[in-house]
Design a protein around this nucleic acid. Structure first.
Lengths: 194, 194
DNA sequence: GCGTTACCGTAACAAGCGGTACGATAAAGC
DNA sequence: GCTTTATCGTACCGCTTGTTACGGTAACGC
């Protein structure tokens, strides 16, 4: 054996670098050299940890999925009742992280996926996971509805949330936090009285 | 004078090429050479018609704005009453064009604008124009509301529409046309009874 | 402490990028 | 028909891209 490397540690360090570069410099700025510089290493290590550039993007998207899932779990766990859980998850989803970095990564990856079927599959899979979560949270709120109607409602909620996110990332003044929160509250309240 | 060229004709031909390349190959595929090849000329003409690559992107975004404005005007004009106008505009906005090319251009430009303040200004300006349109259409529907409340409602509608668009561009099966139409109809119906 | 072995920085690659400079070409004016 | 002048294809520039190959280096087993 030769010197053992901290594979997982490298992945995490590079993961943070990919994330930072993609969030700060956007999709065109995501280069192997930029990632290496940010991580304090060379492109050698980058391409020993990830097979190619596409894997960097996929990893960033999976990091995004993990982050949002953790926060959604926490929001869900922290709320007392079914309606509260749904509202907490939605509210958390429209609350921007540091400088909207999650929305930036989301948009960057989506743009990259428009010309890459592999990335497209990853995007769709993770996007549907959020939809499933809302459908699951919606079940105890409206047990009288059938799956189709709950699915319709869940999709509308996903559209509202992701719409606010892509809009707020470049126009946070117009799509301010109280605007988003008010819309979410109204959307949840609506579910109860129809 | 020497031979006069059809400047406007060139711009339109190149405009179509930029549009096609951006829609088909995505943001990374939008190169001067790809545009020239698609337009059946060389990079010489491309850079004689547009000063640089950024101008190509700006022009594509403005083409998108013009297209959507024309369709929105038509929808608005074709509907009989205030509620009908609003619903027609919204419904048209979630109806995909050829292979979702408008959404593709929208996403590509947004991604590019994340790292370019000039593009960001263009994006925000055109995005707000749609918001203004909805506010204007909303005024006769809910004259009893104040500007703030109509603004809140209009922003929610924009988020719903753009959310559906960015979601449907990569997952048209989940976010099918009837799902979007149902959501729009419900959103408009809601405006009348609260 | 020595030999082995895996790691990863270095360097280079070919390809493609945006952008520039120039001149052959061809139309317009007289 | 000759001169003038704007057009735009050609060629090229310097740079950056993703990716590959190699070998010095450092840690482990014995």
């Amino acid at each position: 054996m030769a010197r053992k490397k901290d594979v997982q540690g490298d992945r995490e360090r590079l993961s943070a670098a990919v994330w930072a570069v993609l969030a700060e410099r956007g999709l065109p700025g995501l280069t192997l050299r930029a990632v290496a510089e940010r991580a304090g290493c060379t492109t050698g290590l980058v391409l020993h940890t990830f097979p190619d550039k596409r894997a960097l993007l996929v990893h960033a998207r999976e990091t995004l999925h993990r982050r949002t899932a953790v926060r959604a779990d926490a929001a869900e766990h922290g709320a007392p009742d079914a309606v509260g859980k749904l509202e907490a998850v939605l509210s958390q989803a429209v609350t921007p992280t540091d400088n909207h970095d999650e929305s930036r990564v989301w948009v960057g990856f989506l743009a990259a996926s428009l010309a890459d079927p592999v990335l497209a599959d990853v995007h769709v899979a993770h996007s549907r996971a959020f939809l499933r979560r809302l459908e699951r949270l919606l079940a105890p709120v409206r047990p009288d509805w059938d799956d189709a109607r709950r699915g319709q409602a869940a999709k509308s909620l996903v559209a509202l949330v992701e719409g606010f996110n892509v809009l707020a990332v470049r126009d946070p003044d117009t799509y301010a936090q109280d605007v988003k929160d008010t819309a979410i509250k109204a959307a949840v309240a609506r579910l109860g009285l129809s």
